[in-house]
Design a protein around this nucleic acid. Sequence first.
DNA 1: CTATTTTTCGAACGAACGTTCGACTAGATT
DNA 2: AATCTAGTCGAACGTTCGTTCGAAAAATAG
Lengths: 224, 224
Amino acid sequence: MPRSAPNNHRDSQAKLQRILRQAARVFSEKGFEGASIRDISRASGVSLSGLYYYFESKQKLLYLIQIHAFTSILQRLERRLAGLLDPEERLRTLVANHIEYFLRHPMEMKVLAHEDLALEDPYRREVAEIKRRYYQLARSIFDELRAGGRVRRMNPRVAVLSLFGMMNWIYTWHHPRVDPPADRLAEIVADIFLEGVGNGQAARRARPLPIGRGLPQHRARASA
Amino acid sequence: MPRSAPNNHRDSQAKLQRILRQAARVFSEKGFEGASIRDISRASGVSLSGLYYYFESKQKLLYLIQIHAFTSILQRLERRLAGLLDPEERLRTLVANHIEYFLRHPMEMKVLAHEDLALEDPYRREVAEIKRRYYQLARSIFDELRAGGRVRRMNPRVAVLSLFGMMNWIYTWHHPRVDPPADRLAEIVADIFLEGVGNGQAARRARPLPIGRGLPQHRARASA
DNA sequence: CTATTTTTCGAACGAACGTTCGACTAGATT
DNA sequence: AATCTAGTCGAACGTTCGTTCGAAAAATAG
């Protein structure tokens, strides 16, 4: 009955990825509880029972989507951070990576940001652990920034979580036709944060060179 | 069968409020779709069918919770803003009002922030309209701030929505035993925002008098 | 006390849910 | 050619869902 021939392990994995993508879309549109496996069957073109060849439960399906998205964003971030030493550049890279990934994979990220309540305890803990690692990475960059004297006295936990708030809320309002693209958005958010937690001297600047910051030069490009 | 006597219209309204409170709790814990009317029946002590005397559908129940919360926060804000003219103070008041209400009614606000996808089109539009009014109020305060020359050139929509991001994300991480109380939290968030969007001069200061800003005086009280 | 209105609930409805099962197909292996 | 394995699906399972209905109790009015 399968019209195209799934000959090997490769094709099977690819089909699973296709299912995960469609499932993420359905979850992002109707919510985890509001979406039915039948919805996902319809969206993916795989029969209801056929889906269970690829995942053993609805919970596991959500888990697979979340783990995949989180792992990707973290791997990508660690790769981009590898060569960077300057704390401000590291933080700007984290923000850019986060927002770019968000806008490039809006459905997966919406599921990630919106559906952590729905996962139950075997899976819940594992996703929470990765989330914690991500927060700790951001926190350590913030602490480097602070050690460099570029942050004023303030509660670091609240500061970092406020940054995540700005970034994670974007999915609720961003419209590609109206709002700036990812790189510009990342710049604005990073500017607000760095100025916002800064000690008043320096901070907001356009992309400087890998080391040292550029001289003051006004950034144009506003929009009313 | 009711043991206490609901004598008049007052008591009936009070019981509805009790049901709304319990329903908000259940929705905040299990999500709108994940929660069943039977859960709400159990939590509120009213029989399954008895609930339908107070609201006509699950959708309407969610609508009532959201409208009530939104109306309250907006009314309270407009009252507090009445006497204030200084844009910075007006913005600080908005932030304080928002965060205080959030932390005082965490369940209702979680439902408000988390479940706008679930509402369908007769109700959805009405809630969206109030949300829009709230955003516009914040936006107009930001524009006043800008007109006063205290904001640098930047995309105002992105700025204001980033502020909402910081505020609306709090419900995902705030733990009363670990994190600062509402007033302190509001101060931090307002500081980050005002410094973050500011033009470099002035901004972050402890509550000044209703008009004019106080002289520089260091704000102590940090926490590692 | 009687009549009326407001409030409550047990029982049941059909629909939709997540999941399972056994049969079937088609390519790979021997 | 016979066997095996990976992949697919229709049909059905038992459960839970939101909602309805009619009766009965409690409060109010005359």
